[in-house]
């Protein structure tokens, strides 16, 4: 089975103090550490585990600049058979749609029974790549997949709905699955494991190699544009709700309701 895993190289923003850059259209990234998108870590692990079970080949691919080579090498260390870096200066400024178009073009040109990726990336929090790639390839897709079973060319998976409810679905292959975190336990990658794959080549494919037009990628090929970025106002610690327990509780209930803290 040929499995292609779409990886993303993202800045680790979860713990960092962020500031918006001068143009006000992005954050300052010079101080940030970049790493494999956490969700994608589960995708590559699932791909390797599936390969270990049913055999086949795992290909990791990322639309990312040079710096991301380490991430792709880590994919090889995790058990991927080959890795490709898709980058061209023209790709700069691509939105989710343009990235999906690049990935779809790459996938279309090679055998693929299953395409895996993480449901969400921590940088743009879009959750759109998997679904878009599936539509572009005209194959079925699903997101938030928490369990994957493959037998006789048929794919069965569970996906998370809200509140402990799951949906069980079947799909024909090929398909695109965007996985949820926690569907497996990603393996550890030691320094030695990376050393072992140090000699493997990670080809970089550029615009022409992929047969793409410049107008289809980058900001020209994007459908949305970032106009402004700002940090939400940050309070100095908690606003303490005063009053007797009942009063405070009542005030808190209002706040929760207002902020979406009361679900179904």
């Amino acid at each position: 089975m040929d499995i292609i895993v779409c990886m993303k190289w993202t800045p680790d923003t979860s713990e960092a103090d962020l500031t918006v850059d001068k143009e006000g259209k992005d954050i300052r990234k010079d101080d940030l550490d970049f790493d494999m998108n956490d969700w994608d870590r589960f995708a590559i692990e699932e791909a390797v585990q599936l390969k270990e079970k049913v055999g086949g080949k795992v290909t990791a691919v990322a639309v990312a600049p040079e710096d991301a080579e380490g991430m792709l090498r880590e994919c090889l260390a995790r058990g991927a058979d080959e890795a490709y870096q898709l980058w061209d200066d023209a790709f700069e400024g691509s939105d989710g749609y343009a990235v999906a178009a690049i990935l779809a073009k790459f996938i279309k040109d090679r055998p693929h029974d299953l395409v895996l990726t993480g449901t969400l990336a921590d940088d743009d929090c879009g959750g759109q790549i998997g679904g878009m790639v599936a539509a572009m390839l005209d194959i079925p897709g699903s997101t938030l997949v928490s369990k994957i079973q493959i037998s006789d060319g048929k794919l069965t998976c569970h996906r998370e709905l809200e509140g402990g409810l799951y949906e069980s679905i079947e799909m024909d292959l090929p398909a695109v699955l965007s996985v949820a975190t926690g569907l497996n336990e990603p393996r550890f990658v030691s320094v030695r494991a990376v050393r072992k794959v140090a000699a493997l080549e990670i080809p970089t494919l550029e615009l022409g190699d992929l047969g793409l037009e410049a107008s289809a990628v980058g900001s020209d090929g994007s459908r949305i544009r970032i106009e402004l970025m700002e940090l939400p106002p940050e309070g100095e610690g908690a606003e303490i709700i005063t009053g007797k327990a009942e009063e405070a509780a009542a005030k808190l209930a209002e706040i929760l309701k207002e902020k979406g803290g009361i679900g179904s």
Binding site: R78, E185, P186, R187, F188, V189, S190, R192, A193
Partner: peptide
Amino acid sequence: LVDQGQVPQSLQ
């Protein structure tokens, strides 16, 4: 175990 990637998630 480390060489095999088998490290408890809490330590990874």
